[in-house]
Design a protein around this nucleic acid. Structure first.
Length: 570
RNA sequence: GAUUCGGUAGCUCAGCUGGUAGAGCAUCUCCCUUUUAAGGAGAGGGUCCAGGGUUCGAACCCCUGCCGAGUCACCA
């Protein structure tokens, strides 16, 4: 990690040494007895109240023997007022003149002890009596500023840098931090909603011998001592159902899930799902549960059921519309899929510009039609219900129509947010459906399951109570609630390509070495002769010469006749 | 994978038909006891993503590569 330090980084390292020379530990061990936070100070202002606060120094305005600075803590910023003669009561003004003004830098964590007051302009501030350095910052932060009209100057906006250095992003972009505060609130709201209803939060394996419960390409890893392949989970469905078989009546899990597929602005290789299973319920109950849950979450996060996403206004207020998949397709295409054969659907797709291939079964074809022609039209939360049986291998058959299942997906802004079933609990039917999936997979449908989890079938044979289950995409939900169209904006540390390694610059490059080797034999040489002997490309020559003189290894001397001589610098 | 745009100082960005790089903030020095995006004055700071080509001369034009963003395709 040898890396060229910028001038500013060097200055900060020097300050670090000077602080130590003054007997100040830049990274002290002792706790700092913080009494309050910036938001509290502003909310309950009391003239003269003594406080101790801590945070990062984020700006400084010197006014001679006085100075204003801003301290940023987890709640926001508060102005602090440093007056030389209040900090340094004796004649020794070192703490103000040297430590505060010269050796502290923007980004340093400091603790401040003082009392509250309002400046002549009416700004709530802390008059500093004592301050301590709590942690020195050696790398300058990006420094956006907001002016009186709310315009942001020098904004730190480059997405790559923001995602790679999320820590800096969080420090300087309060709106980014707010997204993650909201994400935490969403998790709390959802969790307490479930706990209030008597459901238990459980944990199931992330490392699985069979990646079941969904159709997706898994990440493969290897267990050394067992010497078997293991998979990162693509869902937790089967494990959660096993807990109901074991006697739990309501369980949920916030599950990091992994899918080895494309990465783009709506897909991160690992993402968060919430899955919940409740015994003795069906999908009708679950729909009502879902709309109440989402309304509750929206209010907990934003204080309102309204949200804006991609230019659309969404309202999470329950209840939501319900449309059967058959009706949805009729509405947007005029096609009635009921009793259509695979061949009929295939030819309809071809005629209507939907790409199909021979691996597609009936369910997949219907899914394609829906995805292509209908999905994007549902802006406000809408339940699409009653999916074809073929594409829902874990879902119970519809009570009125054996070709359908009791399944819903909740669509918002044309995207799936939740997926739920009246769960299939007939072990014999389940086994047949798995086998059907296996055939589809063999046919080439890469969305069909490739494995049969026989342990799950064994569990089902003991009997699972009638159950309804639902999965909710947490990332997607928080995207809707915060108006972010990119998943990277709502995941703290999104997966990125590895950062290119910084190349070492200390060693001479080939072109530089070539020039220097020739030159060092004689010590000096006419420029054009040297250029010819070096035999480099023009650019290689030019760059080589420039960096050699930059390294202070060579210099060029101009003769009276205009000739140029290159010399080795001793 | 296809296509468009981009990569210049610590940060945000200029840089014309090619003539060897600029601004604001930040940094450094000096002055200033209640300011508000920015107190005043001055100074320093750059492998212009990398490599090759064209040219007397390339940040700029051409080629290749790397990295990123957007759109589309594929995909939950």
């Amino acid at each position: 990690m040898s890396q060229q330090l910028s001038e500013q980084e060097l200055v900060r390292r020097q300050s670090l040494t000077k602080l130590r020379d003054l007997g100040i530990n830049p990274y002290p061990q002792a706790l700092y007895p913080v009494t309050t936070r910036s938001s509290e100070v502003k909310k309950n202002f009391e003239e003269g109240k003594k406080v101790m606060i801590a945070g990062r120094l984020m700006s400084r305005r010197n006014q001679g023997k006085a100075s204003f600075a801003e301290l940023q803590d987890s709640e926001g910023r508060i102005q602090v007022y440093f007056n030389r003669d209040e900090i340094c009561i004796s004649d020794d003004k070192m703490m103000y003149n040297d430590v505060y003004k010269k050796l502290l830098d923007i980004g340093d964590f400091i603790g401040v002890e003082g009392e509250l007051f309002k400046t002549q302009v009416g700004q709530i501030s802390v008059r500093v009596k004592n301050f301590s350095l709590l942690s020195k910052s050696l790398k300058p932060l990006p420094l956006p500023k907001t002016d009186a009209e709310g315009n942001v100057h020098d904004a730190f906006t480059d997405p790559e840098m923001r995602y790679r250095q999320r820590y800096a992003d969080l420090v300087v972009n309060p709106h980014v931090k707010e997204v993650f505060v909201k994400r935490a609130k969403l998790m709390h709201a959802m969790r307490s909603f479930f706990i209030d209803r008597g459901y238990y939060e459980v944990e199931t394996p992330i490392l699985q011998p069979i990646p079941g419960g969904a159709a997706a390409r898994p990440f493969v890893t290897h267990h050394n001592s067992l010497d078997v392949p293991m998979y990162l989970r693509i869902a937790c469905e089967l494990y959660l159902k096993k807990t109901l078989i074991g006697g739990f009546e309501g369980v949920f899990e916030f599950a990091k899930t992994f899918r080895n597929e494309g990465m783009d602005r709506t897909h991160n290789p690992e993402f968060s799902m919430m899955e919940i299973y409740v015994a003795y319920k069906d999908y009708n109950w679950m729909m009502e549960f879902a709309e109440n849950l989402l309304e509750h979450c929206a209010i907990a996060v934003n204080g309102t059921t309204k949200a804006e996403f991609g230019g659309h206004n969404i309202n999470f207020k329950a209840p939501y519309k319900k449309v059967t998949m058959r009706q949805a397709i009729i509405d947007f295409t005029g096609l009635d899929i009921k009793n259509k054969t695979e061949a009929e659907l295939t030819s309809w797709c071809t005629a209507n510009g939907i790409e199909v291939n021979s691996t597609m079964g009936k369910g997949k074809l219907i899914d394609e039609i829906f995805g292509e022609k209908c999905e994007s039209n549902y802006i406000d939360p809408t339940f699409i219900i009653d999916y074809p049986k073929e594409m829902s291998p874990l879902c119970k058959e519809h009570r009125d129509d054996p070709s359908l299942t009791e399944r819903f997906e909740l669509m918002i802004c044309g995207k799936e947010l939740a997926n739920a079933y009246t769960e299939l609990n007939d072990p014999i039917d389940q086994k047949e459906r798995f086998e059907e999936q296996l055939k589809l997979a063999a046919k080439g449908d890469d969305e069909a399951g490739e494995f049969i989890d026989y342990d799950f079938l064994r569990a089902l044979e003991y009997g699972m109570p009638p159950t309804s289950g639902m999965g909710v995409g947490i990332d997607r939900l928080i995207m809707f609630l915060t108006g972010n169209e990119s998943i990277q904006e709502v995941v703290l540390f999104p997966q990125m390509k590895p950062e290119a390694k910084a190349q070492k610059t200390v060693e001479l490059k080939d072109n530089e070495k070539a020039i220097f080797d020739i030159l060092s034999k004689t010590g000096s040489m006419e420029l054009n002769t040297l250029k010819e002997q070096a035999g480099l490309s023009n650019k290689g020559w030019d760059k080589g010469m420039k960096s050699l003189s930059k390294h202070g290894l060579t210099s060029v001397i101009k003769g009276d006749d205009g000739s140029l001589t290159v010399m080795v610098v001793e």
